[in-house]
Write a protein that binds this DNA or RNA. Structure first.
Lengths: 240, 240
DNA sequence: GTGTGTCTTTGACGGGGCGCAAACCGGTTG
DNA sequence: CAACCGGTTTGCGCCCCGTCAAAGACACAC
């Protein structure tokens, strides 16, 4: 946790510590308070960032007022660069959910780094590839899966990403309202509230105000994946 | 159309023709018949490809038998490389919808090319960035938009991508069943059939068997974007 | 303590769109 | 010509889940 965020960032993996230091020296450090917006959707995409400390989120606003949460960022994560190296405006907004510190590089600096360290370009390609796969998975979910399963998946992802073990189970260590959960899964706060109530009744989670503890991860996994498979029998009869 | 597919591919933009030729020389050429599968989801991702002639599609299968069509490929498009450079298996399958020719490079060759031509790596980053944005747009649509609008969007994208002007309007120049359209938009063939029938009645399109002609693009745009905006009035009253 | 605002819960209602079934093409094969 | 097969259309019923309304719970300020 106290490790250097830059060194942990997969984008800068494989660099000598000297190279890393040079890159760090070129960065601008920004301090953000909780709720502050680092860049807004539609802004000219000039900077790439790495989150050093804190928690941020990337959100996209839909014309009709809906919001989609794309990623929740933890220290060491690279963001903004996808737009900064490609198109000319950010497709998402980046906001701090708590006091945070980011390192930023201008587009020109970033290009210079990429040319000086081909390894960084390859790393970035790999990181982007991973992100594309995640997005494809999400598209698939949204297209074909029921809400409860999508919510279960989102919660499990959160647990993996920002989960923290406590006596009671795994705490999702980021403030997370019902609406946030809805905006992660493409549903409404009413539906997520209902789902969480139900899960709580069954003892799978403990849900408080902006707070979520997973007590029975296996139960959620069972909802998230299709582990019932009751109608295999017929096929056995059909086969021979 | 008869231009060299490799030269048109954004990934290899900015290379000298000598460099291009060297890259072409390292490629393996594959001939595919319609319906043939070049690689299947889950296969170890070894090769990157550029489509030279024909039409292909990238599809992803969902455990419960549903299918999602991710992209329809036209000559000059790069594919497979995102997985080949990142993770170790393809997340999608690539199948030819008609007789096609592809150029392929092994992972090692591709890495060699990337190192020899840093420009290619930058190009690839840009291409991936674009793809990420497209996927984000799609996630947003699936999360918040009604089926008819999603279908309208998909059709307009197809028109832009593989549209061909004919006397009657714009022909979507790829065999496209109702089910395909459903698998592009996350709905069912029944619903897409109903929507197309309705559009046909209103004179927006002419839909045949695996065939679609757009006669009134503006009408579809009106469905795809929200151009009604009837309740602005209130806000004017509220403002002062 | 009381008040206030935000987040959450729950009920009631309605509709969009999915699922199934069955009929209907239109092109291909024999 | 008839038979067939894959794609398409259409009706019908149902149910998930979005929407609205209202009350409840919790945190914080004063």
């Amino acid at each position: 946790m106290d490790l250097d965020a830059l060194a942990r960032c997969p984008v800068f993996e494989g660099l000598s510590s000297a190279g890393l230091e040079r890159i760090r020296a070129e960065a601008q450090r920004h301090l953000l308070e909780g709720g502050e917006v680092l860049f807004a959707q539609g802004d000219p995409a000039i900077h790439s960032y790495v989150l050093e400390t804190g928690r941020m989120r990337l959100v996209q606003l839909h014309p009709d007022g809906r919001t989609m949460i794309y990623r929740i960022l933890t220290p060491g994560e690279f963001f903004g660069g996808i737009a900064a190296l490609g198109d000319e405006t950010y497709p998402v907004s980046a906001e701090a959910v708590e006091a945070s510190v980011v390192l930023g590089w201008s587009r020109e600096t970033m290009y210079r780094i990429l040319r000086a360290h081909p390894q960084v370009a390859l790393n970035l390609l790999r990181v982007q590839a991973r992100r594309i796969q995640e997005l494809q998975e999400r598209v698939n979910e949204l297209a074909w899966e029921r809400v409860e399963r999508r919510v279960a998946r989102a919660v499990l992802r959160l647990a993996r990403h920002v989960g923290r073990r406590i006596e009671e189970g795994v705490l999702v260590d980021v403030p997370l309202s019902r609406e946030d959960l809805a905006n992660l899964t493409g549903t409404t706060l009413y539906t997520t509230s209902r789902i969480l109530s139900q899960w709580e009744q069954r003892g799978f989670v403990r849900a408080g105000r902006q707070r979520l503890v997973i007590r029975a991860p296996h139960a959620l996994v069972e909802i998230a994946e299709d582990l019932s498979v009751p109608e295999r029998r017929e096929q056995i009869e059909d086969d021979p």
